[in-house]
């Protein structure tokens, strides 16, 4: 790979790495506005849960993909681990789903640590390719190891204990849990925006060799970012499993799902606080609109949208809004 010199065109460099102390305030404002969604759109909770949940997972993806600049196309592994660990513990051991979700986080962190330690010596597209291979192998193994996962027939969750008296299958409850998750992910991102660790990651993203020269340990920092990203994605996966109520390895570990998370972040803007949220809203909400008005054409428009974003808004649509506001 040719080494790209510190690129002055990179969004983070262009707008200044520190977006200002008010960013946390914005996080709270946006979350507070979103909290009214179930009240306003009480008939469209399923869509709301999907948008917020995917926004949360895309933001988690962005911790590695955007802030650290390591393009992963295998994050479905953590969605799958989160969902399966939770479900299998519920079904086989009667463990409550929230503890199951924690166990999923543990499992995801272990997997991410091994995965990162082995493949982080690869850079750029090589890391992305390796991530596809890891995810595809995981999918095939999950599909075939029936005694562990239930195999291709999938698992279903007929009933769950109540969480603090709340019905976990209620879309309203799921929405607020997803919102909390999104909040966690965005707060993590906003911390990356300002903390020393965040600067390290951004330095690695811009030029790994230069970062090493100033005393940053890229492999360690990349692995740490990967762990955080995996843990948050895994929580999202557990909730996604509950939301679906039934799932199979081919859906939970699919390359499509991995690519979708990355696309949401890119379309909204990587390495920004709200980019993944904007991307998730556009892609999930948009495909629902397209499904109704352009039946069968939604993927086509999806593809077109991606091309247009790359050509005309390479930093993501979220940053277009920002630029317009600054003018």
């Amino acid at each position: 790979m040719p080494q790209t010199p510190l690129s002055v065109s990179h969004p983070a460099v262009r707008r200044g790495v520190n977006a200002g102390p008010w960013s946390l305030g914005w996080v709270l404002v946006v979350l507070a506005v979103l909290a009214f969604y179930p009240v306003v759109f009480r008939n469209f909770l399923t869509l709301g849960v999907t948008i917020v949940l995917f926004a949360g997972m895309a933001t988690a993806w962005d911790v590695l993909g955007g802030w650290t600049g390591q393009l992963s196309l295998g994050h479905a592994v953590f969605v799958g681990i989160g969902a399966y660990t939770m479900a299998l513990l519920v079904l086989r051991a009667g463990v409550a789903p929230w503890w199951g979700a924690m166990a999923g986080v543990g499992a995801s962190v272990v997997v991410a640590a091994m995965w990162g330690a082995v493949t982080f010596r690869l850079r750029g597209p090589y890391f992305a390719l390796a991530s596809i291979a890891v995810a595809e192998m995981t999918r095939i193994v999950a599909n075939n190891w029936a005694s562990l996962t239930g195999g291709a027939e999938g698992v279903s969750l007929p009933s769950l204990p109540r969480f603090l008296g709340l019905d976990l299958f209620s879309r309203r409850v799921e929405f607020y849990i997803a919102l909390v998750l999104l909040g966690l992910a965005v707060v993590a991102a906003s911390w990356l925006q300002r903390s020393r660790f965040g600067y390290h990651l951004q330095a690695i993203r811009e030029d790994e060799d230069a970062a090493m020269a100033v005393g940053i340990n890229p492999t360690r920092d990349k692995v740490l970012a990967f762990l955080a990203s995996a843990a948050l994605t895994s929580l999202g996966g557990s909730l996604y499993g509950i939301f679906l109520g039934f799932f199979e390895p081919r859906g939970m570990f699919s390359l499509d799902l991995s690519v979708q998370l990355a696309l949401m972040a890119y379309i909204g803007g990587v390495g920004t606080l709200f980019g993944p949220l904007v991307g998730a809203g556009l892609l999930v909400g948009g495909s629902e609109v397209l499904r109704i008005y352009f039946p069968g054409k939604s993927l086509f428009v999806y593809g077109l949208l991606i091309i247009l974003v790359v050509l005309f808004a390479p930093d993501g649509l979220g940053t277009v809004v920002r630029r317009v506001r600054r003018v």
Binding site: P125, L263, G303, I306, I307, V309
Partner: peptide
């Protein structure tokens, strides 16, 4: 001249279309 993720994204879009 864009960063490499742009071309990856672009080819994903081309494939979908």
């Amino acid at each position: 001249r864009a960063p490499e993720h742009a071309s990856i994204l672009m080819t994903v879009g081309i494939g979908l279309v």
